[in-house]
C-alpha cells in the first residue's frame, strides 16, 4: 500500500531538479512579453470599443474585474510587462510571478470577453500560476525538488489536457465522424492562401491529416509516461503540427508550444552553459559553477 502511495506521489509531484523551473521561467516570462506585444494585442484597442459589445467571461465576473477602459488597459499593460520582466530575471520569483499571473489572467480574459474565446492559453495560464509556488531556483540547482516537480507536472497535465480534451470536444460536438468531415477544408477556405488553397481541393488528403491529428490528440496522455526518444518524437510531431497550421492557416498555438518545454530536461542547459563558457569566465566564477549537490535523479525524470 505504501508502495502504491509513493508511486502516486512520484507521479503527480516527482523529484525534478529545480533548475528546470529556473529555465522554464527564462522562457515563459519573456514569452509573456512577446505574447502581449505581438499576439494578444486586443485588450488595448478594446478600451476604445463601446461596452455594448463587452461580454465578460465568468472569471471576470467572479473576480469583479472592471470593464476595459482606455486608462485601465494601459496601466494593466505596464504592470504586466514590468512583472514579466522582473520574473524573467529570476528575482522576486513569488511576488513578480503572482503579479504577472494575475495581470495576465486579466489581460487574456479581457481579450476573450468580446465573443471569441481562444483555447491556446490554458497551459500558459496554469504555468504562470504554478511557477511562483516554487520560490527561488537557480539554473544550476540540480537538487531534486518535489515542489519544482509538481509545478512542472501541472504544466505537463495542462498541455496534455489541451490536446486530449480537444479530441474529446470533437466527439462531443460532432460525433465520431469529425475526422471524415471537411472542417480543415473550411479553415483552409477561410484563411488559406497558396498551398492551402491547393490542399483545400484534396478531400482524401484532408481526411488523412484530420485522422492523424485527431489520433495524436487522443493519445497525448501517453506523453506523461513516455521517456527519451519516443517522448521527443511526440514533441517533434507537435512542433511540426503547429508549424504547419501556422504556415497554412496563420494559427500558431505558440502559448501551448512553449509549455511543451516542460517535458524537456532543460536543466541540462546548465551543463552546456558551464561547458561553453570561456575559460576566463569559468575561473572568475569558479565557485558559482560548482554543483550544489549530487543529484540521485536522472535529469530526464519528470
Amino acid at each position: 500500500m505504501r508502495h502504491i502511495g509513493r508511486a502516486v506521489g512520484n507521479f503527480w509531484a516527482p523529484l525534478v531538479p529545480a533548475a528546470r523551473v529556473a529555465w522554464l521561467r527564462r522562457v515563459i516570462y519573456p514569452f509573456v512579453i512577446v505574447d502581449v506585444l505581438v499576439f494578444v494585442r486586443d485588450p488595448i484597442p478594446h478600451g476604445d470599443v463601446p461596452t455594448a459589445l463587452y461580454r465578460p467571461l465568468l472569471v471576470r465576473q467572479l473576480l469583479h474585474l472592471p470593464e476595459p477602459s482606455p486608462v485601465y488597459v494601459r496601466v494593466l499593460f505596464g504592470v504586466l510587462l514590468l512583472s514579466a520582466l522582473v520574473a524573467a530575471t529570476g528575482r522576486l520569483p513569488r511576488a513578480a510571478g503572482w503579479v504577472c499571473a494575475l495581470a495576465m489572467l486579466d489581460w487574456l480574459s479581457n481579450g476573450m470577453s468580446y465573443g471569441k474565446v481562444d483555447h491556446d492559453h490554458f497551459a500558459l495560464v496554469v504555468a504562470l500560476f504554478v511557477l511562483p509556488t516554487v520560490g527561488r531556483a537557480g539554473t544550476r540547482d540540480r537538487e531534486p525538488d518535489a515542489a519544482a516537480g509538481w509545478a512542472v507536472r501541472m504544466v505537463q497535465f495542462a498541455v496534455v489536457a489541451c490536446y486530449c480534451l480537444a479530441a474529446w470536444a470533437k466527439v462531443r460536438q460532432s460525433g465520431w465522424g469529425w475526422a471524415s468531415g471537411s472542417t480543415l477544408t473550411w479553415a483552409l477556405t477561410r484563411r488559406g492562401k497558396g498551398l492551402a488553397e491547393i490542399l483545400a481541393g484534396q478531400p482524401t488528403l484532408i481526411h488523412v491529416m484530420q485522422w492523424v491529428s485527431w489520433t495524436a490528440e487522443f493519445c497525448s496522455p501517453l506523453m506523461l509516461w513516455l521517456r527519451g526518444r519516443p517522448l521527443y518524437a511526440y514533441l517533434l510531431f507537435w512542433g511540426l503540427f503547429h508549424l504547419s497550421t501556422y504556415l497554412l492557416l496563420t494559427i500558431h498555438f505558440l502559448p501551448l508550444v512553449v509549455c511543451l518545454l516542460a517535458f524537456v530536461p532543460l536543466e541540462r542547459l546548465g551543463d552546456a552553459d558551464r561547458t561553453l563558457r570561456p575559460a576566463w569566465a569559468r575561473r572568475r566564477r569558479g565557485a558559482d559553477a560548482r554543483p550544489r549537490g549530487a543529484s540521485a535523479t536522472p535529469s530526464s525524470a519528470r
Binding site: 474565446v117 480537444a166 460532432s174 471537411s182
Partner: peptide
Amino acid sequence: VINGTARGDDQQWPFGPMSQFAFEVSNSGG
C-alpha cells in the same frame, strides 16, 4: 478543465471546452 469540455461552454474560460475546430463541416452540402 475536464468538466469544461464534458459539459461546459466558453464562458468558463480558462476551463471552457477545448472546442477549437471541433465542429463538423459536411463534405457535401456543408
